[in-house]
Design a protein around this nucleic acid. Structure first.
Lengths: 251, 251
DNA sequence: CGCCGTCTGTTCGGTGGCGAACGAAACCGG
DNA sequence: CCGGTTTCGTTCGCCACCGAACAGACGGCG
């Protein structure tokens, strides 16, 4: 794992603005958080936190995807949210719960910024723009979770895979995802064979292409057509609730 | 059921303490909200709000159950949360979104207190104990939604019905639910016939009994055994995050 | 360069829940 | 007490997904 110091150094890659929530903070807010911030390289499959464990950091993805999942006693699981550069992982740290019964897993390898829980809580308590931003993000996450629940119940694996791919490339701001079918299956809560089959169809149709541990979306419009309405709902609600890409401006 | 009047007046039934969140507010907070509060009788099936519409009130159930559901374009639906006397309906009003793409339906007829959106928002903005309470409740709702999503994916209709019954009687603080199989089916996201069959099994086993529009739980322990782990997870997390039944006390 | 662990492809029987269609019984208002 | 409406009961073919088991193939690592 490679760490890049934020304070000094010419590493543009360490610019917190790569995460859209951080980019939307006011200059003073960002200035207060910056010294505590750390850029971390996240390998595929790493767990940022486990069910019920107390959490020590809030994570702001820059170029990775994190899946929030619930795991049942028998090992079966289902993903309930996809987080990328538009969001953060660890909402329960400012919602007041300290922990949650879910699990957060790196679903596409990449980088993320992390900030100690205490620093986030302190800033949140001030009740300013940052609090408002975090709460709006939380609501967009709630929408996503709810829509995933309905999607789980009513839509085919084909549709769900398409939906997942779309959500992921939006949150990566890139058409290439570094992951495996096995991991996708566990977040969709279906068998790996089901993903293989659906992905095969999409590849035959020329909509995506993949090799071992790597998926590329080739034809976005047709992928949207193959997906269910759930993607559109989540996207619309995210656009409504979350800040545009342009950085913070005085109110 | 015994009620304790907070101020004056012989109408014990209108005591806000019947809702546990209201009961956990500090005396000054409750005093500020009381004048805006209204007790409303809610008939089965009534929608408190529709997807995307702007919301005018926050609802605090006293003796009813409200289901939060997502409805798909083709009419299919799934419930993502059950709210009773332990909670409130309308979190997006203080989370900053003003509306959500979901729908809230009366799932068991009864009474609820409602407070205008503006009053809640004003109190929330003060950032005191009430804000903390609402946020913790929101987190418990998130847990519930996520667990429902996994349950949707992996558990049988039998298990889900049992889970739903348990959550409901907890939130009613009574073993009798006034609802129909059709409504239960729509919140579980399954066919009405499936509910009929599962409910039949439970009745034959002597665990519940029902007649038109009315279900009674007879044997709670065996209902818990018939349910999946999801109920226990939600319950444990609710107990961890939410105030006990005892009313507010100075910190 | 070659090995081996990981990832992907394929097959087959089994089944839970779906969709549709219809009948019977319980409650409501007149 | 009596139609009419709502709610509940039952049946049957069907299909997407499951569970298990195994074969091939890529690619990192020694």
């Amino acid at each position: 794992m490679a760490f890049h110091s934020l304070a000094e150094g010419p590493f543009l890659v360490s610019d917190p603005l790569r995460n859209r929530l951080l980019a939307a903070l006011s200059p003073p807010e960002l200035r207060r958080l910056k010294p505590m911030m750390e850029l971390v390289d996240l390998p595929l499959g790493r767990a940022l936190y486990e069910s019920g464990r107390s959490m020590e950091h809030v994570w702001f993805p820059a170029s990775c995807i994190i899946s929030m999942m619930y795991v049942l006693e028998d090992g079966a699981s289902a993903g309930i949210g996809v987080v990328g550069c538009e969001g953060l992982v660890g909402i329960s740290l400012f919602m007041g719960g300290e922990s949650t019964p879910s699990r957060a897993v790196v679903q596409s390898a990449g980088e993320a910024f992390r900030v100690p829980a205490a620093a986030i809580r302190k800033e949140f308590m001030k009740g300013g723009g940052m609090q408002n931003l975090m709460l709006r993000y939380t609501q967009s996450l709630i929408t996503q979770m709810a829509q995933m629940a309905v999607c789980n119940r009513h839509h085919s694996v084909d549709q769900q895979l398409s939906r997942w791919l779309l959500l992921s490339i939006d949150r990566l701001a890139a058409p290439d995802i570094i992951t495996t079918q096995e991991l996708i299956a566990s977040t969709l809560g279906v068998r790996r064979e089901g993903v293989t089959e659906s992905a095969g169809k999409l590849q035959k149709a020329g909509i995506i292409s993949y090799r071992r541990g790597h998926i590329s979306v080739l034809d976005r419009p047709r992928l949207e057509a193959a997906s269910c309405e759930c993607y559109a709902v989540v996207r619309r609600e995210s656009e409504r609730l979350l800040p545009r890409i342009v950085p913070w401006q005085a109110p």
